[in-house]
Computed example of a mutant assay.
Amino acid sequence: MSITDVTARISQIQAQLALLPRAGGASATFTDALSRTTAAYAPGDPAGAPGPAGSVTGDQVVTRALELVGLPYVWGGTDPERGVDCSGLVKSVYSTFGIDLPRLSADQARAGTPVASLDQALPGDLIAWDNSGRNVGADHIAIYIGNGMMIEAPRPGGEVQVVPVTTPPDYVRRILADPAPFATTPATAPTAATAPGAAPAGTPYADLFQRAGSTRGVDPALLAAVARHESGFDPRAVSPAGAQGLMQLMPATARGLGVADPFDPAQAVDGAARLIGDLLTRFGSVELALAAYNAGPGAVMRYDGVPPYPETRAYVQSVMTSWQGAA
């Protein structure tokens, strides 16, 4: 997998996780908070205590880390131009955003706040291992980038790389502030996608699309078109990336939406309707909302439109054709 592929995939499947209010304390919609793409975090100080609210996001941390892929491993290195070791990588990436972490991996693995397990980790979190009895605490550390992947400086003779997390970490630490609960805000003006409608006759789960669409202010036919493309109306579908259920929600995204079981069609449809409704409010366009559903709001904002990912462009065209054909 190329770095371009990794970056695109991270934007696609991990840019929908962090949920926080807008800077300044104003309440935000789910997608206002998803700015990772999206949400505003508060950086921690060297001791791990939260600092003042800022605009640093987990996706920004990941994006910066990805820029260092291929950089040589240099023992004791912290220079993003010449080389880094594992803790040097972490320190260098976070210092870009004015977050001063300790130099050693053992100290970095005590910074921020603990995360219970890897399945609760968000992009930008630190994951670390205690592999040696010769020292106390972590002796290897990496930056989690989501979907079971991490970026690390592995060993002398190696280079900064993106690899799967194959061994459960001994430490998971969050340097950025915990995501805050979100609140949804309905669209203020009806559009074709938010106007009342109905799923086409004979559509599987039509009653669920109708109910969720009415509740969340989204055209049921649009929800049905998304489900058709995402899973072929299969509530047990699981994608290679781990997206689940009728609406193909990633587990972390489902949790953020309050969906306890993404394989439950009723919960999945309601969660997807909630997300799509907020994306419509944020971007004001069905095409952009669909692009954000597929590739993440951050990718849409980064490219100021539908991202140039072939998969995303094909996705938007396919769902739009299906939805418009149902009108």
Rank of each mutant, 00 (worst) to 15 (best):
S35H: 07
A252S: 05
Y94D: 04
L176G: 15
V218F: 08
R103G: 00
L290D: 12
D170Y: 04
L249Q: 12
V163G: 09
P251W: 03
L122K: 06
I99Y: 00
M149A: 12
L66K: 03
A198R: 15
S35V: 14
G24E: 04
G158Q: 07
T57E: 09
E287M: 04
A53N: 10
P186I: 01
E81L: 15
Q120M: 06
T188V: 11
P164K: 13
G98T: 07
Q60E: 15
E230P: 05
S27C: 10
R155T: 12
R313V: 11
V162F: 09
L280V: 15
P179I: 09
G83N: 06
A183E: 15
A237F: 00
Q267F: 02
G98E: 08
G284V: 09
S105K: 01
L223I: 00
A289W: 02
L288E: 04
A116Q: 09
I13A: 11
L290M: 13
G202F: 00
G305K: 03
I13R: 15
A199G: 07
A53S: 12
W75S: 11
P102N: 00
N294G: 09
S214V: 01
V238M: 02
T38L: 12
V115T: 04
Q120T: 05
N135D: 10
F97E: 13
E67N: 14
L208D: 00
G217Q: 00
G217I: 01
I276Y: 12
V74R: 12
T96E: 01
V160A: 03
S132C: 06
S318I: 07
Y309S: 00
V238Y: 03
G24H: 06
P80A: 08
P168H: 08
P220A: 03
T281L: 13
R228K: 14
L275E: 14
V316I: 11
R302S: 09
K91T: 10
R228L: 13
D125H: 11
D219C: 02
I99V: 12
A266M: 12
D264L: 01
R155F: 06
F30K: 11
A260Q: 15
G133S: 10
T38K: 11
M247R: 05
G277E: 14
Y73N: 03
Y293C: 05
P297A: 14
L246P: 08
T167N: 09
Q14C: 11
P114R: 07
G112N: 04
G51H: 05
R255K: 10
V300L: 12
W75F: 15
A142E: 11
L246K: 01
D278T: 02
L275W: 14
F209L: 05
P43V: 04
M250V: 08
G213L: 03
T78Q: 12
V90L: 05
